[in-house]
Each structure stands twice: as structure tokens, then as C-alpha cells.
Design a protein around this nucleic acid. Structure first.
Lengths: 341, 341
DNA sequence: GTGAAAGCGCTAACAT
DNA sequence: ATGTTAGCGCTTTCAC
């Protein structure tokens, strides 16, 4: 391991000068800087991050708190991680993947106490999130992918549910549908105050109201089986529904099966939208479902960027909402004939 | 930040004694140790990892080199990461997620030069992997999830393709099938010497031969469209095939569509197996496909464990092969009648 | 069994 | 503009 001292010796300067020459922390004569840079180059010098961090109190390491594989665990979560890791890298930082388990607070206390990370990135944020509260209280810089109920003063990147719901409703309304149903995430996630569950529900209702079309939003199937049941009940109670937006992948599977059992076809008899699911998943269906694809990688990137900006200095907190992208598949079409509404 | 000095002061001992008491690196009187431990406890002392690492040359940080999202990017890759992160955590280590891009070697040189990580975990290993060669040459401890062609002396955890193929063949043979086809990963992955592609191909052929059943293995559809075409060609050339194992999720989608177009049904007319795909994905199909689910999380765990063991001391390299788990779905059944073989 | 002191590699005063 | 000095918080000789 070649150290800064080696470089300094070779360039015939003091260590502090070598340091300054490489970091630009204080003026250095052009000639000197050149000598130092050449020496560093020739020796293949790499600054020791530990030494630097010990001194400067900044490690340039971010931690991504990763929830235990409970509920959903699709490409979405993964892309938060990869997006964040890539952005961090581009900005000269590193990303620690920190699996969260039993006691997330103890976990955080440990992680931040070690002096290893400069800041924390939170995902799967709940409306009332104890982790966010803890970090705020502890004065640890952090940013969220998602957001709490009242995220004032906190950096975050989240899905723009209002715009997403608006796009979805506009899509089906544009096709002529007059009544839309929405299958939210499982009751469990809703009860857990999971942001997307709550917000998507509210925004779809609002968007439908605003567009002046009928709306049914009180189903929360969390599995294929529940999805099928929910669909049957939906049509029993609301036979005039012609379009359905589903949040849970597995519920969608059940819906599709139920549609087939009924002798119906997609999209002729039902327009089906998949919400918050990746295009990769949508391609697994037949027909390929129209999808509102979450900007997962971008949210991850944004989260990391915001956090790093925050560490660099302090501007006002940045709060970004990014809508899902509507990827048209083969599951949307004008409403079926003979609907009595 | 409370430091070891604070603890030492409060316990009325020298810093070195406090250190020894907490780490057990040298004998300390029971009474003294107790005082130190209590002081540490009361002050909420957390050792500074940077300082410790600077001194000891060991950071207890592992890097997981994460390939850029090119080919497949499913739950499998993600579970390598989470499995490894969890195992690392349990063993007192941390996992750095290091996205790999353009020049992986430069990447590695950088990463290891920083003195930040003790070892590297490789995934998506090719038969002839330059990263493995570089790490070996540089003397950087590493372990692989997957393995090179000649992994002698290197720790790795990989799928037991022989056992997996054996299980799959036994499954279909047990149902009475006499001829099995295998759709490998895309031609691109094969050309890239991607381990699973090569090994699964070879082992399925071997297992079929050994079981004495017919075998067709020269298809490599990498998309739904190619999957459908491959299936049509397969039946044109081998009308007596009654069972099919598919590696690529999307190809499976195409196969299912092609089966339906033909007026066939699964499993009555075709037994369909999904190989190396997660149960989560298999559940998206109708009927739910029988799957050979890769032990992804376990491979990640094993990789991390091996690497940590290696860092702790040196025993002989550990090389573990873990078979896929056969998860029976509703896509396997005895062969259709009237097959002329 | 315990304390004092050196030093890991670096940055940041403080001198010059 | 450059060199000297003092640590960052810890582990580890080396004395006692």
C-alpha cells in the first residue's frame, strides 16, 4: 500500500503539501502540483479512505436501510438499491446495504454509532415512520425514498401518486370508460400505513371524481386467490365497471383467471391496468398488461443525490415527486357494449 | 461521539486496558473488565470502525460487485445481495453494494486500493472471468457466487446443476415422459460463457441420457417471441416431445402462448418446467408452473460466510454446490396420449 | 495485570 | 507557497 508519505517523498515535498496538491484544499504552485500528481500517478497512489475519514469525520459512505424480505420484494426494491448505488458512485460515494430486521431503531443506533456512514437512505417509508423520527432526533443526515405523512424539512423522492392516478384515469376515460375500479395493496399494507397504499387509494378516488367517472376503491386483495374473489364480488356489486386498476401483481393474476372463468376476455370485456409494477412483470402476462411503471431506479438515484447534496452543504430540503410511466400494453381498450350504468 | 478514552477515564483505567477489556486481546482482571464494561455500557460507547480499521488493516467491510442491469434482473440477483448482506451482518461485517460498469477491473483496482474493503464477493461469474483472475493476481481475498471453469483454490457457492437437472429429469421421467426438451438461456448468455447457461445445458443432456429418455437441447430463446417460435419449431422437428424445461422467464411466456395457439393445454398436453426462476415468478403463470427454484439467498449467504471465514484465517477453500428446490406446480402431469415415439 | 507511548494515513491548524 | 506539528480513535508493543 503506497501512502501519501511515499508520494510526498518522491515529489520532494511535505506530506501536507502533497495532500493539498491532490485535494486542492489550499493553493499550491502549479509546478509543485504537477510533480505531486506525477508522483502519485507513478506510484499508483490511492488515498486511504479510513485515514481520511478518521480525520475528516466524513466517510463518503451512505447506508441504504433495506427492509427484510416480507411483503413485496420485486424488481422495484432492487432498483432503489441499484439506482442509489450508481448515483452514489458517480458522486464519489459508496453505498452500504444494511438489512433491517427485528429492531430497526437499535439497528440504526448501531450503524450510525460506528462512525462508518455519513448518512442514511430510508425506503419503504410509512406515514408515521419511527426510523425517520429517530434519525431526525439523532441529527443524522438522511433522505427518504417515499415519505412520511409530514415530511416537512426532510429530503425525499417519492412517486407522484396524484399525477399517476390522473394519468391512469385519463387513459381509461379517454377510451370511453365511465366506471373504474381500483384494487389497492393488501389490507395489511394499508393497516401498516404504508405510503403507496394510502396515497394511491386516495389519489385514484380523487382523480376519478375529478374526471367525473364512477369509482370503486374498497378492495384490497393481496394474493391471486383474493384477487379472483375481489373481482367476482366487484362485478356482483358493480356490474357496470369496465376498467380495473390493480396494484398487487399476484392479485392481478387472480383477476385474470377470474375474467377467464367468466368467459370474458381482456381487453374486449375488461380493461386491466397494473399499477406500480415493473414492465418486466407486466410482460409475464397475456395479454401484456398496460402498466404504470414506478420510476424506481430514478427514485433511488434521487434519494442518493439529495442525501449527498445535504452532506455537502445545506440548502433547503429537496422534495421530488416523480410520476409513474404509463406503458401501454394490450390490456386496455374501449369499454364493452351493453353496460347498464 | 463517546470514545474509548471517555470509557477509560470513567472506569479509571488506561485506554489500552479499556481496549483490552472490551476486546479480550490480553488478560484483564475480572473486576477491571467489569468496570470497563459498565462504563462503556453507561456511556453508550461504540467503537469507531474507521480508527479500528486504520490500525488493524481490517475494516470488516465486504464489497459485492453488482453487475449492471443488463440481462436478467430478477429476484434472484437481489437475493444474492440480501442473503449476503444478512450473513455479513450476522458475522459482524458490512456489505458494500458496488455497481459494476464499463471497466470492472479498473473498478476493482479502485475499490480495493481504497483500503475500504477486506474482501470482494463476485456474482454473475463467467467460465473465464477476468475479475476473478485480477483478484487472484492482486492477492485480494474474494469468493464467488457461481464459479469459473477452473475454480481450484477459490471459495465459491454455486448451483448444483447436475443435481438440479437430475431432479428435473427424474420428475418428468417419473410422470412417464419419454422425451424432454430444454430451452436454455439466450444465445447471448451462452456465447458470453455465462456459467449457468453452459452448465445447465450440459447437465440436462447428461441427466436425460442417464435416465434413458430422449432429449432436445439446442434451443436458446431469450424472449417471449423467440420462446414461441422455438416451441413451434421444436414440435415440428420433434413431435414426440411431451415435456419441456425452460430457463428464461420470458421465453416461458412465449411458450405458453404458443401452446394455447395450438389449442393445447398445460399440463394435459405439455408438461412445462421453469428452471432457475423464483417461485414468485412461477406464481404469475397460469397454471402455476412447476419450478426449479435457485437457492439464491442461500448462495449469497454462503458466499459471504466463506469470504469472512477466509478473512479470519485460512483453511482449505470451501466449495459448495446447492441444488435448486423443485417446487411442484400445476404444470406437470403424465404425457399426453398418442405420442408416436 | 496495567499504564505509557508509538503510530496506522491522513487533514488541518499554525508557522514560516 | 510550503513545511512543521498535532491530532482523529484505536490497537499494540514495551515497560513496569
Amino acid at each position: 500500500m503506497t501512502s501519501l508519505r511515499d508520494v510526498a517523498e518522491r515529489a520532494q515535498v511535505a506530506v501536507s503539501t502533497a495532500s493539498a496538491a491532490l485535494n486542492g484544499t489550499r493553493p499550491v504552485a502549479a509546478a509543485t502540483r504537477l510533480r505531486v500528481e506525477r508522483a502519485a500517478e507513478e506510484l499508483g497512489y490511492r488515498p486511504n479512505l479510513l485515514a481520511r475519514g478518521l480525520q475528516s469525520k466524513r466517510t463518503r459512505i451512505l447506508a441504504l436501510l433495506f427492509p427484510a424480505p416480507h411483503s413485496g420484494f420485486g424488481p422495484t426494491e432492487m432498483q432503489f438499491a441499484t439506482g442509489a448505488a450508481e448515483a452514489a458512485r458517480e458522486l464519489g460515494h459508496h453505498l452500504l446495504l444494511s438489512p433491517e430486521h427485528a429492531d430497526p431503531i437499535e439497528e440504526l443506533r448501531h450503524l450510525t454509532g460506528l462512525g462508518l456512514v455519513d448518512g442514511v437512505l430510508l425506503m419503504e417509508v410509512r406515514l408515521d415512520d419511527e426510523r425517520a423520527r429517530f434519525l431526525s432526533g439523532a441529527g443524522v443526515p438522511f433522505a427518504m425514498i417515499g415519505r412520511t405523512r409530514d415530511p416537512a424539512g426532510i429530503d425525499y423522492a417519492d412517486i407522484d401518486f396524484a399525477a399517476t392516478a390522473g394519468d391512469a384515469v385519463a387513459h381509461v376515460a379517454g377510451l370511453g370508460h365511465r366506471k373504474l375500479a381500483f384494487f389497492n395493496l393488501s389490507a395489511g399494507t394499508y393497516a401498516a400505513q404504508y405510503g403507496p397504499s394510502i396515497r394511491a387509494g386516495a389519489e385514484f378516488a380523487a382523480a376519478a371524481r375529478q374526471a367525473g367517472i364512477g369509482y370503486v376503491g374498497d378492495f384490497r386483495p393481496g394474493s391471486a386467490e383474493e384477487g379472483g374473489e375481489a373481482f367476482d364480488r366487484l362485478l356482483a356489486e358493480h356490474p357496470d365497471v369496465t376498467a380495473l386498476a390493480v396494484m398487487d401483481d399476484h392479485a392481478a393474476v387472480g383477476v385474470i383467471a377470474a375474467v377467464a372463468r367468466r368467459g370474458w376476455r381482456i381487453p374486449e370485456d375488461l380493461t386491466l391496468l397494473l399499477v406500480l409494477s415493473s414492465a418486466r412483470v407486466a410482460e409475464m402476462f397475456h395479454p401484456r398488461l398496460t402498466t404504470l411503471e414506478p420510476p424506481s431506479a430514478e427514485l433511488g438515484r434521487l434519494g442518493a443525490q439529495m442525501l449527498i447534496d445535504r452532506l455537502r452543504g445545506d440548502g433547503p430540503p429537496r422534495q421530488r415527486l416523480v410520476p409513474c410511466r404509463l406503458v401501454a400494453g394490450d390490456s386496455s381498450a374501449p369499454p364493452r357494449e351493453g353496460v347498464t350504468s
